[in-house]
């Protein structure tokens, strides 16, 4: 009987001690865990901020990509439409020039073109080329330029003259086509402005 009670007492003591140890361990673990959590909170917050900031960066990047490429696409379409319209205006204008009447003003223009050409070449000893439509006008204007001859060959152009020195070394293209080509960038700008496109 006595031995049983002392055994029970011993067991109780062990249990009590074990319980105390377990409770103490649990307390310690809780404290460590809380400490751990407290310590990792700023780190977590930092990581959270980092993830949010990276996400924002990525979103900004994608937004830039999308807006950039759609803006460009829209602008390019507009450029093509403007160019197409400019082309139409040009074609129409060239048609009108080709069909224009060769009146008195036109013979004055031919004279000034011949004057300009011979001045630039530095001689009137030249051969003049023109289209079949302007041959008569050019022939009559040539009387004022001694040594200048009208070529029997005709050239394809809207109007005006192409002048070549008799030795063949120098040529000056003063046809309307060449003049329009040289001024084309400025004319394009003027037409575009009429369409409301400005830089």
């Amino acid at each position: 009987m006595t031995s049983n009670s002392s055994l029970e007492q011993a067991i109780d003591k062990i249990l009590e001690k074990t319980e105390e140890e377990i409770v103490s361990d649990l307390k310690n673990s809780k404290t460590t865990s809380i400490q751990f959590l407290d310590d990792s909170l700023p780190k977590l917050e930092q990581e959270y901020d980092q993830i949010i900031s990276n996400g924002k960066k990525e979103a900004d990047k994608i937004e830039k990509q999308i807006t950039g490429s759609s803006d460009l696409e829209a602008r390019n379409k507009q450029l093509n439409i403007v160019e197409e319209s400019i082309g139409k205006v040009f074609t129409k204008a060239l048609e009108q020039i080709a069909n224009a009447e060769r009146s008195g003003d036109y013979s004055n223009l031919i004279k000034s073109l011949l004057e300009e050409s011979t001045k630039i070449l530095g001689t009137t000893e030249v051969i003049v080329f023109t289209n079949s439509k302007d041959r008569e006008t050019v022939q009559s204007a040539l009387s004022q330029f001694s040594g200048a001859e009208l070529s029997s060959e005709t050239i394809e152009c809207l109007g005006g003259v192409k002048v070549k020195s008799k030795d063949g070394a120098m040529t000056f293209d003063n046809t309307l086509d060449a003049r329009i080509e040289r001024l084309k960038p400025l004319i394009r700008k003027d037409i575009a402005t009429q369409f409301g496109v400005s830089n």
Binding site: E116, I120, L121, G168, A169, M170, T171, F172, D173, N174, A178, R179, R182, L183, P185, L186
Partner: peptide
């Protein structure tokens, strides 16, 4: 920019 062009030389 002017409409005036340049002279073309053919003696190379």
């Amino acid at each position: 920019m002017s409409a005036e062009g340049g002279v073309q030389y053919s003696k190379i």
